[in-house]
Design a protein around this nucleic acid. Structure first.
Lengths: 218, 218
DNA sequence: ACATTATTGTTGCCTAGGCAACATTTCAAT
DNA sequence: ATTGAAATGTTGCCTAGGCAACAATAATGT
């Protein structure tokens, strides 16, 4: 439970205020085992979740059964926070546990109920939530920025550029498998494999498993 | 200024509370003439904007100069609200006035400063803002849902399906030109034109200018 | 009413990359 | 260590749709 304090939701709040705030939010803990579904696409939820330990992956489901990767969650990642403000609270994604997971859940209502003990902290909490939502929005925006590139090569470069924190670092580590990367880029795995090789031949990058070094940035 | 009260930001707030709240937020009004740029991509802003009259279009700019349409704003649309919570407050899009525009601007700080007169209304305001942000998030999500379809025909159908409020209505009116639609679908205009005709021939839809009737939904 | 500009339809050409099929390597579980 | 299952590399084929170029139509401003 102490680790919950480290979540972005609680940054900028004094330790003791934070204690009070959290007890005021009265989160409850749930465990999920690997491969279990934490949240079904289309299901209504009335809590936001915080991953305390383990990892999860969010997929967008297609009527035809195909899944598209949307995001990866790691310890202290928050989920369900966008649904707070929607009418139906229906999740647009399915959340799979990719390892054994411990997660904390906080009821939406608690977030907005003004508690008597730590109101200032409460305000900070809401602002932090805005920040979390903003971050998620921009990650989706990043993807649009990548997908609008016309060729696969350009998509890859755009992806690497964003991953490298907009060109600050030159060696990046892809946070998932190449198969998933192809999925993320909405392209074909073998086409991705081909193109990465071509880019290596053309001296643009060096590929080493999941590590990619970006060579040219003219 | 009365029209500002009708913005989503102020729904669920009593008229008199709303008056107080708005004077507390002390918005200021600005005018833009057609084709003027309201907000530059990359520019920092410290206000959220509400369109009072007129229309605007948000474009994502590419280093190479190509613009991708992101959203259309009409009276009572809000913009800049996602930037409230970010560190740099830098706009990811450029906002063009597509007609003469009147807009109200409210400083971020005012949103969170607890006023003495209408604190409850203030809380409602924040919740409304969460709703606005959530809506924007889902509109972006919709686009991903469309773009991940593999063929152009499937993209068009997915687009029409979402536009028809998930299949409730069978005749939809495209909110922009076909040229812009092709842009939105990240595809080629003449390819879109071709495919729409083919779909008409195949008896899937009927196209009448910007009105499209969806015939089959098996 | 007229002129200018934007939108739309239509055609043909051509290539990026989707797809399937297989071999190889890496990873995970027992 | 061993086995089964993913992940990855690689090849060839083939088509969806990008692109350019033009004509026709519609919208807009003067």
């Amino acid at each position: 439970m102490e680790s919950l304090q480290n979540a972005v939701l609680f940054t900028g709040i004094q330790a003791d205020d934070c204690q009070k705030l959290i007890s005021c939010l009265s989160p409850y803990i749930r465990h999920f085992s690997k491969n279990e579904i934490i949240l079904f696409s289309g299901a209504s939820i009335k809590h936001i979740g915080v991953i305390l330990s383990g990892t999860a992956t969010a997929y967008l489901e297609h009527p035809n059964g195909i899944q598209t990767i949307m995001s990866q969650l790691k310890p202290l990642s928050v989920f369900g926070e966008i649904l707070v403000s929607t009418r139906t609270h229906k999740s647009p994604v399915t959340l799979y546990a990719t390892s054994d997971i411990t997660a904390a859940f906080i009821e939406y209502e608690r977030l907005f109920s003004i508690c008597t003990t730590a109101c200032a902290a409460h305000t900070m909490l809401i602002q932090n939530m805005l920040k979390v939502i903003g971050d998620k929005y921009f990650r989706l925006f990043d993807r649009i920025n990548i997908l609008r590139e016309k060729t696969l090569r350009e998509k890859i470069l755009a992806y690497l550029h964003i991953l490298s924190d907009r060109g600050v670092v030159s060696t990046v580590t892809i946070p998932f498998t190449k198969t998933m990367l192809a999925d993320y880029l909405l392209s074909n795995r073998s086409a991705l494999s081909k193109e990465l090789r071509k880019m290596e031949v053309d001296g643009l990058i060096t590929v080493n498993g999941r590590k990619i070094k970006i060579i040219a940035s003219p």
